[in-house]
Amino acid sequence: MATTAPPAESTTVWTKEDAKASRKANNKLHRREHAWAAAFMAPPVIGWIAFLLFPLGFSVYASLTNWNGIGNMTFIGLDNYTRLLQDQYFWKALWNTVFYMIGIPIGLALSLALALALSRKIRGRTFFRTVYYIPVISSLAAVAILWQWAYNGDFGLVNQALGLIGIEGPNWLMDKDWAKPALIIMAVWKGLGYSTLLYLAAVQAVPRSLYEAAALDGASSWKRFTKITWPMVQPVTFFLVVTNIIAGSMIFTEINIMTPTGGPEWSTASLVWYVWNQAFRNLQMGYATAMALVLGILVLIVTVIQFRINRANDFSID
């Protein structure tokens, strides 16, 4: 602390009392500064404790109890966790949830393609951007009901459209093999606008000089895409992959609306749907919480791996 050191060439004698008084004044000043700093930091910290740390701690404890969601809790150790290891429906729901992730690369590929198309100066560009973004701002419940109708085997829009090109579509939501793909298609459609918007911003931010230099060197369009565009939009891809995996792991609303009993032979039941059923229909809140925490941990692990992979592939343009 420079201010507390005695003046180097001063003739005044720097006594212990002086040093003490100076420290006291400085401490007082620091205390006030600390108080203000604490006051500014408090709201987010309190919010984090109240809305994240406390619920998380509560959830961890609840998962170790046989709580039914309305009565008292009794500690039962790891019983809920050993139970879920033997629960065939937990594994089936987990598999279904993982299966839904197939939609993520499909959605990203389509979004990037659309973003590249919409970044060009084509007629009706604003109109198309609006059209693709409308599903994002539409209510998921309403969208799910519309798609439920669209998937009707006989009169649904999807099969009628397929019929125009001579394809006899399946009975989407009633067929155990087609119900999951049907939900994936809907999810891709719903999220397309959001991903496209982010990709569009990323594509437009790529310096034109890079493309010009590559063109001068004789790089083909494909080379320019793979060597310039794709690496430059990688942060957006990373962000979308991470958030889509987190969001995809919690797929619930569309399943509950479109296949309220978990689909034919439980083919659409996701883990969050199963958690919800156990918690609110079967009064097994403790068990449901254990499953939710396992899902959370799995997502956390996947996300950390993604961060590591991303760091390894990180690059910058100097």
Binding site: F51, L140, I246, M250, F252, T253, I257, V299, L300, T303
Partner: peptide
């Protein structure tokens, strides 16, 4: 820091999903 950001992200999205209910009160 990476772990904290990741945990917060997962947690926040989890909570957001839970609050959604069966389709949300519109």
């Amino acid at each position: 820091r990476t772990a904290a950001i990741t945990a917060t992200m997962v947690g926040a999205l989890t909570l957001a999903a839970c609050s959604g209910g069966t389709g949300g009160d519109t």
